[in-house]
Structures are given as structure tokens and as C-alpha cells.
Design a protein around this nucleic acid. Structure first.
Lengths: 226, 226
DNA sequence: TGTCAACTTGACAATTTCATAACATCTGCG
DNA sequence: CGCAGATGTTATGAAATTGTCAAGTTGACA
């Protein structure tokens, strides 16, 4: 799924937007002022940016202009406080791709985000690389590193993780995992899955006792949360 | 999740299949003979059909042929009694998409169903999601939130809620709920249903004492009001 | 052959979920 | 109103599921 950066200084609104897009299975990065937003846009290369205009430290206009000047081409969706036509014109002139006037419905914003992502084709890119905190996993080369240090992932662990990640949040039953990772040839116990999950957690979860990414859904299976 | 129609006359097998696919969170419709199966296929527009060949009243061949003749394009998976090659050829000729030879493992059947659904693109149908006030329930991820806060739903609660919601307003008796959520294997008291309903209310009703969505129909059962 | 890593399995512990009973409250009806 | 049956509510022990660890198996490779 796509990564979205939300820059909004009004705390309650920011909270609501972050929750909503996380709920819709996006990976969400947030910033509460223009300067931070600008930096996070450069550091995290999001697929889309939701940008308020009125922001402390650096206005949304300036963030947008500077990013475009540096060749950043991701879709930017502006939030304008008033239904002010001049805002619109200026925003679009600066290189924003769309804008939504406050107050707006989350549903409408959601729809616009989907539309922009579809247009930019970003939603299709299935990353070959996964980042969790300071761990990076490259599914092409089967390499995983924490910082510079190489982590020792086994093949099953790679396959299992990749499958769960590719299902983006959906619960996958143990039987389904066995089918798709192990194939029809071998018939291991469903408990085998649990063991591998435990091993994966030990390697990538910050606190394996309280997993945040490899989530157990009791009585059903496992799912991946970005 | 996807809707599956299972047409099988052997009662024990039908029972096992229905329970299994319900457990895997599919919405399951069942039929015990060809004629009924044919009609349910037209009435309920399932996403996939599992179709035995030897059936009373109308053979699986005929069901398949007639549906195809009418332009029904859903994937059809045939169950053949013997590993008879001619069965296979005939089935696929008639427009079946896959076939499995009895006896088969439920796991294999499961895998084929998933594969067919993936191919047909049905599984991509976005997360079915339910919103009640500030509570959102995602049946795909088994996740429920009030605002940003994660609600702890159990599997039974999810299944029960989903069934009631899918019946959209009509009353469902406790016996029917036991049948469809619990399956035929277990025989809990009808009181067990009440308990789960109470737990659900505590979690999603704004005022559990005065339920507005999970409504009791005295002497009959429960129904869901959006 | 010996070694080693990957994988699987089983046993036990920890946790979660579930079914039921017991008691409280409500509904419909005479 | 008062009754009987139905439903709401809560606590609790049992059952099911999952976490964890250690030991066994397999296959590759030197």
C-alpha cells in the first residue's frame, strides 16, 4: 500500500486523518508544521502528501514550492481553510495536484487520495523493500539488515514475511500460509507456522513480546501491520 | 469476503465444506441438489461455485452448462467422484474452471478456491467495512476501532455481527445463528447467543442499555438495524 | 563421516475465548 | 397488578489457542 505524509497543525484534525488513513491500511507519516513536513517529505519519500496551507514555521505554499523546485513529483493535495478561489489558484499554480476545502468529509478526502494515487500509478508499485524501524528487508536479494549489520533470515522466514506483507493487513489463516508458502507437497503442522512467526518477531519486532507488525488474530491467523 | 455457493448432495460432506468455508470467513450458501443449486446461483450471485457432478434432480454438468449459457461467468469448481479423465474433460468443456477429484483434502480445495478467486479478481474487492457512529469494523483485517483506539473483538463476535449485518434488518432466530455461526459440530445453548449479543452491545452501542443497532425481537431473535 | 543450519515437532506454560449457571430484569398477557 | 417465560448481566471454570523452548530430523557441504 502507499505511504502518505500528512502535514496539519490542528492537532485534532491531524489525529483524525492519521487514524483514518492508517485504518485504510496506508502507511502514514505525520508532521505538525511546515518545516517538519518539508523535511519528512524529503527523508521518507512518501507516495502522496496531504498539506495544509496555514502552517507554523513554513506555509504549505512554501513547502509545496520548495519540493517542486527540488524535483519532487509526488501528488500533493492541499487543504485550504476558506473556500477561497485565490487559494485554489495559487495552490495549483505552485504545483499542487488537487485541493479540498475545509470543512470536508473524510470520505471525500479519501476518495480524492485514491484518485490521485491511481493517476500517479503509485498504488501499483509493490515495493521490493520493506522498512521497519531500523530494519530493512530486500525481497529481491533476500537480504535483511539492521543498520549495517546483516540479519540472518532463512528462506521460509522471507517467504512467510513477504506473503503476509503482500496481503496488506488482511488476516491470513495458518492453512492459507501453509498452502502458499509451503505448497501442496509438504504437510507440516499449523504449529510450524507459529514457530516461524515467533522467529520472525524475534528478528524484526522492537519488542517481540508485544508485536506491533506481525499480529496474531486469535482463532484466525496472522496479519501484517505496517 | 467472497460469497461461495456449495452444491453437494452428500449431507456429511456438504456439512463439512460449509463449516470449513464459513470458518475461513467466506459467506456460504448451500444447496443439496442440482435444481436448487441452479436457482441459488441465479438468485444470490455468488463469487464462486463449488459444484458436485453427481446430483439429484439436475446433474452438475447441466447446472454448469445452463449457467454458462445464460452468461454467468463466475468461476466454477467441479467435484468429481472418480478420478475419471472423461469427467474432467467434460467438466472443463462445459465451462468449469477447475475440478477436484474425491476424495480430496479440504486444504487442497481451499487452496484451489483461493486461487480461482484471486484469478477472477474477486478477492480484491475492497475491505468490507462497517461504520456505526465512531466505531469502524473491518471484516477483512478483523480490526475494530473507536476513533483511533483498538477494540478487542473476538472471533465469535465478529462472525455473529457479520451474519446479522449481512441479513440487513431481518430477524434471525437464535437457532439460525447457532447454525450459521457455530456450525453443526457444537451445540451450545441458545443462551450463549444472548451472552455474545450482550458483549457486542457493550462494545459498539453508544448506550448498551438502549441498543439501537442490535435489536431484540422478543420471542424470535435478533436483528441488525444500520 | 562430521558439522551445521534450517526446519519440524512435541511438551508445557501463558493467554484468550467460550459456554454455562445463577441471578436480575423485562415483556406480554390474563 | 401479578405471573410465567424470555432476555439482560455478570462471574467463573473449562476448553481452545497461542507462545516458547528444547530436542529431533533432514539435507547440504566440506
Amino acid at each position: 500500500m502507499s505511504r502518505i505524509l500528512i502535514v496539519e497543525d490542528e492537532a485534532a484534525l491531524l489525529r483524525a486523518l492519521v487514524d483514518n488513513f492508517r485504518f485504510e491500511s496506508y502507511e502514514v507519516i505525520e508532521a505538525a508544521d511546515g518545516e517538519t513536513g518539508y523535511q519528512k517529505a524529503r527523508e521518507n519519500s512518501p507516495d502522496l502528501m496531504i498539506l495544509d496551507i496555514m502552517l507554523p514555521r513554513m506555509s504549505g505554499y512554501d513547502v509545496c514550492r520548495r519540493l517542486r523546485a527540488e524535483g519532487v513529483q509526488i501528488p500533493i493535495l492541499m487543504l485550504t481553510a476558506r473556500g477561497d478561489e485565490s487559494d485554489r489558484v495559487i495552490g495549483l499554480d505552485l504545483g499542487a495536484d488537487d485541493y479540498v476545502t475545509k470543512p470536508f468529509s473524510v470520505r471525500e478526502l479519501s476518495a480524492r487520495v485514491r484518485a490521485l494515487l491511481r493517476r500517479s500509478g503509485a498504488s501499483v508499485t509493490q515495493a521490493d523493500e520493506l522498512r521497519i524501524g531500523d530494519v530493512r528487508i530486500d525481497f529481491r536479494t533476500y537480504e535483511a539488515r539492521r543498520g549495517g549489520e546483516l540479519l540472518d533470515f532463512t528462506r521460509k522466514e522471507f517467504q512467510l514475511l513477504r506473503l503476509l506483507v503482500s496481503r496488506q493487513g488482511s488476516v491470513v489463516t495458518r492453512d492459507a500460509l501453509l498452502d502458499e508458502v509451503w505448497g501442496q507437497e509438504s504437510y507440516p503442522t499449523t504449529r510450524t507456522v507459529d514457530t516461524h512467526i515467533a522467529n520472525l518477531r524475534a528478528k524484526i519486532e522492537p519488542d517481540p513480546k508485544r508485536p506491533q507488525h506481525l499480529i496474531t488474530v486469535h482463532g484466525v491467523g496472522y496479519r501484517w501491520v505496517p
